[in-house]
Design a protein around this nucleic acid. Sequence first.
DNA 1: GGATAGGCGGTTTTT
DNA 2: CCGCCTATCC
Length: 812
Amino acid sequence: MTEPSGYSDDWSAIDAGYDAAPAAPARAGGGIAARALAARRGPDYLAGLNPEQRQAVETIDGPVLVLAGAGTGKTRVLTTRIAHILSSGRAWPSQILAVTFTNKAAREMRERIGHLIGGNVDGMAWLGTFHSICVKILRRHAELVGLSSGFSILDTDDQLRLMKQVIQAEGLDDKRWTARAFASLVDGWKNRALTPKDVPEGEARAFGNGKGRKLYAEYQDRLSVLNAADFGDLLLHVITLFKTHPDVLADYQRRFRFMLVDEYQDTNIAQYLWLRLLAQGNPNICCVGDDDQSIYGWRGAEVDNILRFEHDFAGATVIRLERNYRSTSHILAAASHLIAHNEGRLGKTLFTDDADPEAEPVCVASAWDSEEEARSIGDEIEALQARGHSLDQIAILVRASFQMREFEDRFVTLGLNYRVIGGPRFYERMEIRDAMAYFRCIAQPADDLAFERIVNTPKRGLGEATLKIVHELARAERIPLMQAAAQLCLTEEIKPKARKALADLLAAFERWRAQLGAMKHTELAEIVLDESGYTEMWRADRSAEAPGRLDNLKELVRSMEEFESLAGFLEHIALVMDRDNAEAGEAVSIMTLHSAKGLEFDTVFLPGWEEGLFPHQRALDESGRAGLEEERRLAYVGITRARKRAKIWFASNRRIHGLWQSSIPSRFLDELPEAHVEVVEPSTRYGGYGGGGYGASRFDARDPFQSGSYSTPGWQRAQRARAAQGGFAEAGGFARADMRSARARQQGPLTIEGELVARSVGDGVSDYAVGERVFHLKFGYGAIASIEGNKLTIDFEKAGRKRVLDSFVERH
DNA sequence: GGATAGGCGGTTTTT
DNA sequence: CCGCCTATCC
């Protein structure tokens, strides 16, 4: 959350003459435009662009959609285009709107433009994320949407706490109707630019005993009273502002002569509407994106936006960037062939001129279980390292974060340096949020959520009872908590002990507020953390994390130095939640496929390509075919991260929720082109019940059982099943897999190749008996020690005691 | 107010 | 199976 900053001063500079386009190139003063113009003598920024890139840079008028495949120079086009607009004298830096999704992307773009035109780009006031640009607009017109200019920005945590209060205030059971569920609902509505009155009746009724709309309206009302906005509001309020105040909209339409949007495939409906409102006054909008890399549908992104671009923006020019500068032809072929299985796409074919005869094909390997997978990948990384490859150029990209732990464990054992990208961020840590809450209370006395957070941290004897009294008064009078507390300190309503504690706290805040103008904000921060007893609290804490938390607090104060004021710092934090991940030393990167988008590495390992995990079962269950296509795009993103080497793995057994499950190779493996893929002999064994559940897989044929020596019951049964069925379901028949939903998996009997494989999947009761001798594909022979429902505890002769589902063992 | 047991959920994440 | 949150007890 946050609060304002010097948002008023940037305006004078920005406003200066934004109405006029730079008329004659020659007249520009000392600004960016001038430097860009100087560079024009030889527009070397255009040199080295391929024809399509050049067209994308030079087609400045009218709507343009640049379909930029992975590694085709997207950012280069975007930044060069801006340099070109500036140098051609068509606009001042302050007349260009350039929107990105992440702060990182915005920062990179700013830097690269700086390199192109040789100098700083301070004049580009409107280069930023959707959210930061919206904040800038809103600060200026806050009153028009029921806020005042210093409004706070709530983060997810504040949002949840507020929603919980609203749900409870409606007299609903907050267990049945969780704040989390409500938050995702409201986020969804805001992503679609729906205010409480716009929400379709059916959806509104589905939550909180039919009270969805009322709760949403109530929540918005509370935000307004708190003078706060959540992330979704930032866009929503600006849309409302534009719709209800045409004069304001017209002002921005005139201001933004050229608009550029990065990662257009990730825009949601609200962002699309926002852009369209602005583009109504001015068709010079250029959107850059790749429909094949749309992987955020689950958080509201509409691939449709990019698919419909030509329709939405009349007379649009569509330019395809298909020349890839990143990967080998094998990698491109693998990725292209895979993604061609998607139907809803605009279609691009990546190619490269860089045909290296030495290039390695994409590799597919199998492991017995996830442990072996981690071990093998670890070994390979060590081998690469020994051959002089930098660990910085190696990445492991997983579908789900639980997969990371196995790699971490393994790398710790090997002493291999690794770094996990993603995960909890600096500003989300408890101690940081607490400290921030103190600062917020100082800067914005009406910030109730911040006050609630720290009122009794450290403990001051201000428990629930006291807080309830304060809350009641605040609510009745519609005043901030701190104001209510101050009033109550003058009465007898609160017990003397608590009253004293409360009065002391309020006095402290008064004191700190008075000091705000008198000293450096970093100095004040230290005083606050010290006098509040907050640092002392952690110093007294004997737990293992306490020293780290104290370090983080120091780091927080240090990072405040970069800002002019406390308010400026708070604003930054609310919008820029990323932390510098620049740890020293070479390291292998471990991250999810999602967080890998936009990155590239020489060598990429892609473990866990198994049905159910990737494509993820939940994506299939919840979004069916669209879900599958998004998973496939994720696979495409994964492969295209690799410059030289991509190695895909699948494990035949994986432990999920503590139970061993045998798994089937991902259907995506069958969608890779044989000519560019090398299947590495499985190291030892084979697991699962031979044959994919949804169709023939050429990975089925490579199991060692085929070489003859195997005759286990599971194998024989699978063979019988194949023979009986006389063939397989059509490859790629995902409809069948779709039907085999998680529910069916858990409740119905599990069949593979028409054969009943699991008798009692789910809550059924096992028909095995204690003491019975059984066979398990992975663990071999053993005796049942105990039975709980369909879960057996078995003492295996070799593997020891394990718990497995009865469906994975055979009577023997 | 702090410790502890029981319940629940367990894909992906930015702003 | 494991980790987190909450409710409950002292």
